[in-house]
Design a protein around this nucleic acid. Sequence first.
RNA 1: GGUACCUUGGAUGAGUGGCUUAGUCAACGGUCUGCAAAACCGUCAACGGCGGUUCGAAUCCGCCAGGUACCU
Length: 304
Amino acid sequence: MKTLFVLLGPTAVGKTEVALLMAEHLGCPVISADSRQMYRDIPIGTAAPTLEEQRRVRHYFVGNLPLDASYNAACYEADALSLIQRLFLSHDRLLLSGGSMMYVDAVCHGIDRMPDVPPELRQSLRQRLETEGLEALVDDLWRMDPAYAARCDLKNPVRVVHALEMCIATGSTYSSLRLREQEGRETGSSKRPFRIVRIGLQRPRAELFQRINCRVDAMVSQGFVEEARRVMPFRQLNSLNTVGFKEMFRYLEGEWDLPFTLDRIRKNTRVYAKKQLTWFLRDDSVRWFHPDEERESLLACLEQ
RNA sequence: GGUACCUUGGAUGAGUGGCUUAGUCAACGGUCUGCAAAACCGUCAACGGCGGUUCGAAUCCGCCAGGUACCU
């Protein structure tokens, strides 16, 4: 049976380097699962694999999208699965590596088929959110899909708006589209025709935070400020609603000074890393390793 | 030596006699199927010390300690 190894872990833990080793060991490319490294023009701020690293091992889904692409986890699921299927023709073992929780989840568990949201619909709901407030939208949700309203985080505008988008776009209910929830995680369409082995990278928190701090400084010396300045005209794009860029834009506007800005970036990156860990730690099928100290056993686990 | 002002949780900062005491930032924990490096939720902890007034004090009074400003 074909095997997909999935390498995951918090940002700055050292995934890129370990992925290279694993890929070389397996003789396969790296399939990246990073929602921000996919965008071109922002390699420094997203700590994307360098050109040298990409010469060492072929990478997919790095720098392959323009900043204004509209993309999401469902697109990624489709793109990744078709690539995986193709690569399995010539490989028995493949490597997916990345820290974007939903993207990894989409490949491993699948995402239910849902309609595309017409941009005008999204726009009008966003408009209503501003003029009428969240309460009005919540009332609508109770009316249109009480089952989902009962379990939805009703204080989260993004969730409420999305549920309404689905209800209005289909004329049905959002909850009726959520098949994975109804069938349970391991059944139904999410069943993959290949084996999935999840490998997690983790370090003691102090060590991880130390690496985050160093990486922010390294980014700056690689020209992060200039990179941010170049893309600032497009700051409203989702691709730039990203830790590092959000803060850097405020610096470039003169609102914050540079030391303060870098502090905020470090802090927000720490918070992001914690969020990733919270997500990944829930999945107890993940086998965890220290990226430096347990490299031997990590590579050994590829042979099982 | 004298006078005035100040002292709140890790940081900042409201509160001015009474429902276990704001907010912000940090820290910590969590949620998550279509913008997810997004969005959202929760927890934590303080009224400088001692004594007094009072049914009741972070809030009023006195002393002590520390700090700031000005004066001789």
